[in-house]
Every structure is written in structure tokens, then in C-alpha cells.
């Protein structure tokens, strides 16, 4: 069983655009850190410019590390409707997995995150996440 507190699961949520989602995440993060919403949004956008965050068809993995985060979080967002145009190069996004890594995080937590990352290399696992039909099954696939 994984450390449940590390995961924040949002199932069947509706977001109209990248901006909509990043703003939402920015607000959540700002409540658990000394980061402002705008700083989170800017950091996520900068990360996109540094390199492609798409890891599979329909799936994005935005992530960053910051000393201003009080705790690390993996926020998994399963979208009710795909975001048809994420940016100029990316479209039809149905699953977004945010990795928010606290600077100087413990080795155990980092290993838990990297183990989850390795799961994301499995296309069958990705397909199951994309096609989950209930919050319960979606959550179980992630935390067990």
C-alpha cells in the first residue's frame, strides 16, 4: 500500500483549458506552500517550455521542485472531457499527473514517487487509468 497522503486524486473533473487547470492547481498549492498561485502557474508554464511534458497519448506529466513547498504531492486529474487544445503542440488531453516535489524531500518519499513514475511507463496501466469508470477503481489503481 502506498502512502495515501502523497496522492491527491481528482476524478472526472471538468477544466476548459490549460490555463483553467493550472490556475486551479496553483490555488491549491498556494494553500500548502509559500508559493503564490501566479508563481505556480509560471513555473508550470516554464517547465513546458523547457521540454515536452506529454508522456503518452492523452497524458501529461507537469512537474517541478521547489523549496517553497511544505510537502510533496502527486495530483492526478482524470478529466470528464478532454481538453481539446492544451497548447500549440499538444491536444486531446484526458489525464494530467502533477508531481510537486518539495526540495530536500526524504529518500523514502522520492522512491515512492519514482516507483509510481515507473508504473507510468506501462501503456496497459495508462490505458486503465484513462478508461477508469469510477472514482473508486481509479483511486485503487493509483494507491495500491
Amino acid at each position: 500500500m502506498k502512502n495515501k497522503s502523497l496522492f491527491n486524486i481528482l476524478f472526472h473533473r471538468k477544466f476548459d483549458s490549460r490555463s483553467d487547470m493550472y490556475h486551479f492547481i496553483g490555488e491549491r498549492v498556494s494553500h500548502h506552500s509559500t508559493l503564490l498561485t501566479s508563481e505556480v502557474v509560471d513555473t508550470l508554464l516554464q517547465r513546458e517550455q523547457a521540454g515536452n511534458i506529454q508522456i503518452a497519448e492523452h497524458v501529461l506529466l507537469p512537474h517541478f521542485e521547489s523549496s517553497k513547498l511544505k510537502e510533496s504531492q502527486i495530483v492526478v486529474v482524470h478529466l470528464h472531457e478532454a481538453i481539446s487544445k492544451w497548447n500549440q503542440h499538444v491536444s486531446d488531453i484526458k489525464l494530467v499527473i502533477f508531481i510537486l516535489l518539495k526540495r530536500d524531500e526524504t529518500l523514502d518519499t522520492k522512491k515512492e514517487i519514482t516507483n509510481f513514475m515507473r508504473n507510468l511507463a506501462d501503456q496497459d496501466y495508462i490505458e486503465k487509468l484513462l478508461h477508469a469508470d469510477s472514482e473508486e477503481s481509479f483511486t485503487q489503481m493509483i494507491i495500491q
Binding site: 523547457a50 508522456i55 508531481i99 522520492k110 514517487i113 519514482t114 515507473r118 511507463a121
Partner: peptide, 13 residues
Amino acid sequence: CTVGIAHTYIAQE
């Protein structure tokens, strides 16, 4: 990878 938490491990696998 840059942050060393995500792409590194997916790429390896």
C-alpha cells in the same frame, strides 16, 4: 532529466 524525478524513470523503464 532536469528535475530527476519523472522522465528519468519512465525513460529507463
